[in-house]
Amino acid sequence: MKNEIVSLSLGTDSIIAIIGIVVTVLIAVIGGIYKIVTSTKKYELTENYRKELLQWYTSVVEIMIRIIHSMESQEFFSDEFQSQKTEMLSRLSALTEIGRFYFPNVIKGDYFGHDKPSAYQGYRDICLEFLVYFYNTALKSVDDSNVSVLWKQERNFTALMFDVIEPRKRNRDYSKHLGLTIPKGQAIEDFIYENPKNINVFRN
């Protein structure tokens, strides 16, 4: 009888130990799954935001460059082009308004513009400031003398969007989460160094 009690006791201890191990393993597994799910969800949300922002940027920059090139070719100032000119400027203005949802006004706590509707209170974000300046410059232009100014505005706008979307980090994320092989960065010097005959690609 005494041996049976000892045996039962040892059996109970073993069961408790096994349960403890199982619980520990389950916690670890659940924690690992949660970490993976959370990481995946974070990646999806980040990528969705980048895609949405990139779509907006694409629409904006296409209009900007179309305006610049039409100005360079002088058609921007012709009577026959006025309807297209109005359409492009209207589109840019609308996209600037949409941009307020990505780049809301900067609130500095000085109540600047507090009497205006909420979307217009505070100071316009520099990203949208470039678009407004571009719009006003194009609207008032009577010749192509402002082309260089418009190019500067477009480049500054693109640079800001580049820093927000972070294409290099985006490529690394693609490589990590999707198992894609991202081409290594290569400048023209690297391209020619790799094979001197590559210089012929850039010759007539």
Rank of each mutant, 00 (worst) to 15 (best):
M71E: 04
S7Y: 10
L10R: 05
Q74M: 07
K42C: 03
L53V: 03
E44Y: 11
S39G: 13
G11P: 00
K51I: 13
T24G: 12
Q84N: 12
I15Y: 07
R66W: 04
V23L: 13
I67R: 00
I5E: 06
I19L: 12
H69I: 08
V61A: 02
V61Y: 05
V23Y: 04
Y34D: 13
I19D: 06
K35W: 08
E52G: 13
G20I: 01
A28V: 15
N3C: 05
S7C: 04
R66Y: 07
V6E: 10
E75M: 06
I63K: 14
E75C: 04
Q82Y: 03
L26Y: 10
S73H: 10
H69D: 10
E72Q: 14
G31R: 02
T12Q: 08
V60R: 00
T40L: 06
Y57D: 09
K85R: 15
T12M: 09
T40A: 08
E52D: 12
Q82N: 06
S70D: 15
V61M: 03
S9F: 05
L89A: 01
I27C: 05
I63T: 05
K51D: 04
Q55M: 08
E72C: 12
V29S: 05
Q74T: 09
V6I: 09
T58M: 09
K42W: 07
Y49F: 14
F77S: 02
I21R: 00
Q84W: 05
V23I: 15
Q55N: 06
L8E: 08
A17K: 09
D13M: 08
I16Q: 09
I67C: 02
S90L: 08
R66D: 13
I33T: 08
T86Y: 10
S59G: 06
Y49H: 11
E4T: 12
T24A: 15
M71T: 02
S7A: 12
L10W: 10
S73F: 08
K41I: 14
G11T: 01
Y57A: 04
I67N: 01
L89D: 02
K41E: 14
